[in-house]
Design a protein around this nucleic acid. Structure first.
Lengths: 111, 111
DNA sequence: TCAATACTTTCCCACATGGCTAACTATATG
DNA sequence: CATATAGTTAGCCATGTGGGAAAGTATTGA
């Protein structure tokens, strides 16, 4: 029953960078090594590694090193948490709109 | 059939700041003026206004000025778009896990 | 009309971020 | 053992970001 201390700040910040979203997209196809990840990007390895670190610190991915290869994979908890925040707010707003409409209907009937 | 040119970069970046998420949360209760919004924050008005502008530019909120009062409200399109991105990726990853499991089952049966 | 109100603009500052190169470490592999 | 491979660290740099104070503009309200 782990307490997935999801930090929305860092999760959203991580997702704000297109390179990092692309990394996540690629990892959704399956786990990949750091250099496999770097392949499609026109970016130096240390720069890519920074992105990997950022993603890992925000809990969006995880990685393990075996021999000289570090393999990265997606972690869904943090993704779920950010999605949940969005869903929550969309819902709250839409419920409010519904109440407004209902209220307007009532007003109409009362005239 | 508007093409809601949702810029994920700016949407996620906007949501990375806790003050801005708080602004959105408050706006989900209903539209508010700039100074109403600034009330609960220990922050100067120009700073808050900057956040409002950032949120507006990323399409997460909109605002209109009537007289000397600017009223802000939530816009759900951008929220929906960011949620959709997350949902898409969560789904892709989970489908992959399902295929993996199925594959392992097949392997087992073949031994 | 004069004062208060509600932003708005301008400019400043400290710090974080994303990129780089160069050099280093730790595993394979021939 | 020598060399290639796969990451990693360190340090630099330009730019962006979140905060502020001060001063300005445009609407009310008395």
């Amino acid at each position: 029953m782990a307490n997935y201390m999801t930090n929305l700040d860092s999760a959203f910040a991580s997702l704000a960078d297109p390179t990092r979203r692309a990394i996540i997209s690629r990892l959704c196809e399956g786990p990949k090594s750091v250099s496999e990840l770097s392949d499609p990007f026109d970016i130096a390895l240390p720069s890519l590694l920074k992105h990997v670190r950022v993603l890992e610190e925000s809990g969006l991915i995880s990685s393990v090193k075996v021999g000289r290869i570090r393999t990265c994979k997606v972690e869904t908890h943090a993704l779920q948490a950010t999605k949940a925040w969005l869903q929550q707010h969309i819902t709250t707003w839409e419920e409010r709109l519904d109440r407004m409409e209902a209220h307007i209907e009532t007003m109409k009937r009362e005239t």
